[in-house]
Write a protein that binds this DNA or RNA. Structure first.
Length: 282
DNA sequence: ATGGTTGAAAATCAA
């Protein structure tokens, strides 16, 4: 096995910071793929969603052994769950909102210790919203819209984001070419106009910048998720871009790279989402 | 075309 020396605890001056978001769909089942992710992308920080792991069962020591001594996790039995794995020290933010008063482990905020001062980092797992895009008929869709509205109001109240990164499985594909067929998905949860508008309002509330589309023209197809239900996900290529990385305007000039690790969808026992990397020269 | 697959859990439920 190839070996690489562990990254230093402090990010060296002028080394770009690599941050990954990944809906891992069970952190316990996919621990080996986490090591594979590290081998391919060598990130300093990994933000996970859908860990599906109560805190008392989180595989902490194994993950530390992958080279991530600093770990925060917020999990529950069966569903949801987020985690931040880091080579660099961070402080957990404890006063972020309890979204929709549900205590359902969909958000973890940290202050990352990087050169030039702390970087605020928010890891989100937005409700998927069920199948029927009607909040009156489908409580899950109502929850999704409520969640998006609360997050928007919170960010409006805080003012424009500064020195911040906002990422995660946001479960909305906002642009026409964030889905395989804009027309076919207009009434499919994740791409309905009401969700797209809600996401646009959220982005505008913090004056966030799309750090991935920064590098990829809006006219180009770009996905981070492919359904398990396709016979051949790669041949059909009916994907959606549900996973996002946003940065505050003051960091837009620091963006140096994005990478969506599409081959991860073909790994054995893959998640239906693939890791998304953004690199910032802070 | 309303299917199809996966994970955690043990009823199915959520995605």
């Amino acid at each position: 096995m190839p070996r690489r020396p562990a990254a230093p605890a402090i990010l060296p001056a002028r080394q770009a910071l690599r941050i990954v978001t990944w809906n891992i769909n069970s952190v316990r089942l996919r621990r080996p793929l986490l090591a594979e992710l590290v081998r391919h992308l060598d990130p300093h920080v990994i933000c996970l969603q859908e860990t599906k792991c109560p805190d008392e069962h989180f595989p902490l020591e194994e993950i530390r052994a992958f080279g991530f001594p600093h770990v925060a996790h917020r999990g529950m039995k069966g569903y949801n769950g987020v985690a931040v794995l880091s080579r660099l020290p961070f402080a957990i933010r404890h006063d972020d909102p309890n979204w929709c008063a549900k205590n359902d482990c969909r958000h973890l905020g940290v202050e990352l210790d990087v050169p030039g001062g702390p970087l605020e980092l928010h890891d989100f797992y937005v409700p998927a919203g069920g199948d029927e895009p009607d909040p009156a008929a489908n409580p899950k869709f109502a929850h999704k819209l409520d969640f998006l509205a609360e997050a928007t109001a919170w960010m409006l109240g805080r003012g424009p984001a500064r020195r911040s990164v906002m990422l995660g499985d946001l479960n909305v594909a906002p642009l026409e070419h964030d889905v395989w067929s804009h027309k076919a998905l207009l009434k499919v949860v994740s791409h309905t106009p009401v969700e797209v508008a809600a996401m646009a309002a959220w982005m505008a509330a913090g004056q966030w910048h799309d750090a991935v589309r920064h590098f990829v023209p809006a006219e180009e197809k770009l996905y981070s998720w492919w359904s398990y239900r396709a016979k051949d996900w790669e041949a059909a290529d009916r994907g959606r871009r549900l996973d996002h990385v946003w940065c505050s305007q003051d960091l837009a000039g620091a963006l140096t790279r994005q990478h969506i690790l599409k081959p991860a969808r073909g790994w054995p026992q893959a998640s239906d989402h693939v890791p998304v990397l953004v690199e910032l020269a802070l």
